[in-house]
């Protein structure tokens, strides 16, 4: 059903445009504190690049890039990074997600430690948003059966 949209023009242009889109998503995640954006927006754009892959090619080709197993691991990994940074702060004796205390580990000034902590949390949020978006889209597209779907 999906293969009927296959078209050389759309496929080739998507092939050329997907890597810059992914790189731009990572840029949005990494520069969250200097320019607009952050974890959520970057994750959305990263998920959208995989959705473009499904639109232009098919699900099988997409799962060669990011398989179902790795996707599920990513969902969990993002939450673990987020809550792990918070828990480290808690262990070191400050409030939950109070990054200033992280300077005991990294040996930098508290302001720098705060920026680093925010950056870590944003990575976690981005990974989770990306994986959940891809997972929701694949489930919607294939009626929840994409583990078996060959086309």
């Amino acid at each position: 059903m999906i293969n009927r949209f296959e078209n050389i023009i759309i496929q080739t242009i998507s092939r050329l445009l997907i890597p810059p889109i992914q790189l731009y998503a990572l840029y949005v995640i990494a520069h969250g504190h200097y320019s607009p954006g952050g974890g959520f927006q970057g994750g959305c754009i990263l998920g959208a690049s995989f959705i473009l892959m499904v639109i232009a090619y098919d699900i099988k080709e997409t799962k060669r890039m990011i398989s179902e197993k790795i996707n599920t691991i990513f969902i969990v990994l993002g939450v673990i990074i987020y809550s792990g940074i918070g828990a480290v702060c808690l262990i070191l004796g400050a409030d939950y997600l109070d990054y200033g205390i992280l300077n005991k580990i990294f040996s930098v000034s508290p302001a720098k430690a705060r920026a680093l902590g925010t950056f870590g949390v944003e990575i976690g949020v981005g990974i989770t948003v990306m994986a959940v978006m891809v997972s929701i889209f694949l489930n919607l597209v294939s009626g929840g059966e994409h583990e078996e779907a060959q086309e």
Binding site: P19, L23, L26, A30, M65
Partner: peptide
């Protein structure tokens, strides 16, 4: 950060470009 991001994207989609 740029080097890490570019390496990640290269790993994901080297056969696309």
């Amino acid at each position: 950060l740029g080097v890490i991001s570019c390496a990640l994207v290269t790993f994901l989609s080297h056969d696309l470009f």
